Amino acid sequence: MSKYLVNKFLFCVDRDPELVERYREDPVGTVGWWEQEEANRILACHGDERSTWLAFTDAEREALRTHDYPALFGLGAHPFLTLTLFIAMFERDHAEPLGFQLEYARRLAHYSMPYPDIAT
């Protein structure tokens, strides 16, 4: 698993409101586009400097395409990055205060400590 690449995806998408909406509406297309066009872009560099070797595993790609944040958590994606992006995408779908956060906690409740390793 490339926890780095998954976390980079979560971080980059969460910081662009248009990309958040694109990912909410078209996760398959957004993940494919991002992996092809953005995954190998070097962070904090100007210009078009890129690496060539980064790609999602099949499990990562599937979890990202289906918005499966429990699977991402299990694969070691950073829970703060996952939570903040999915709050931006799905909090509006819940009527009660903290609705999505409570759903997130419920869906991850089967995990016990020690949690999956989030080191990259």
Rank of each mutant, 00 (worst) to 15 (best):
R22D: 14
L19T: 07
E62S: 09
H46P: 02
L83G: 01
N7G: 12
S51A: 11
A59E: 11
L10Y: 09
V31C: 07
L108K: 08
D14C: 03
L54A: 04
M1E: 15
N40A: 03
E91M: 02
Y23D: 03
R15S: 15
Y115W: 14
R15Y: 14
D58G: 04
G99A: 04
R92L: 14
Y23R: 10
H78L: 11
V31K: 08
P79T: 00
E37I: 01
R24T: 10
P116T: 05
L10S: 03
L19P: 02
R24Q: 06
F90T: 09
D48Y: 09
Q101H: 09
T84M: 06
E96W: 09
H78Q: 14
V28R: 05
T57Q: 04
L54R: 07
A109L: 08
W53Y: 12
H46Y: 11
P79G: 12
I42V: 13
T120H: 14
G47K: 00
H94D: 00
A119H: 13
N40K: 08
A55W: 13
L5H: 02
D16S: 15
W34Y: 06
P17G: 05
L43Y: 13
T57C: 05
I87C: 10
Y4W: 07
L83K: 01
L54P: 00
L83E: 01
A39R: 07
D26K: 05
R22G: 13
P114S: 09
R61I: 04
L10W: 08
H110L: 14
R107N: 05
T30W: 04
E60L: 04
K8V: 00
A55G: 14
G74T: 10
P70I: 06
V20Q: 08
P17R: 02
F80R: 15
A119I: 06
R41K: 14
A77Y: 04
V31W: 00
R107T: 01
P114K: 09
S51G: 09
L72N: 00
C45R: 13
L83H: 01
E60D: 09
Y115H: 11
L10D: 04
A105R: 11
M113I: 04
D93G: 04
A44I: 15
F73K: 06
A71E: 05
A71F: 04
Q36S: 08
F86G: 09
L75D: 05
E21Q: 12
T66V: 05
E21I: 06
K8P: 05
Y111W: 13
Q101R: 10
N40Q: 01
T30E: 07
F73Y: 09
A109G: 08
H46V: 11
D93C: 09
L83P: 00
A63G: 00
V31L: 07
T84G: 03
F90M: 10
Y69V: 05
H46S: 11
P97T: 00
F86Q: 07
Y104F: 11
E91D: 08
A88F: 10
V20P: 02
E35Y: 00
L64T: 00
L81K: 03
T120D: 15
R15L: 15
I42H: 02
L54W: 02
D16I: 12
E62F: 10
E96L: 13
Y69Q: 06
S51W: 03
T57D: 09
P97R: 03
E37A: 15
L81P: 02
L64F: 01
L5T: 08
E60K: 06
N40Y: 08
I87V: 13
C12H: 12
E60H: 07
L81F: 04
W33N: 10
R50L: 04
L108I: 05
M89C: 06
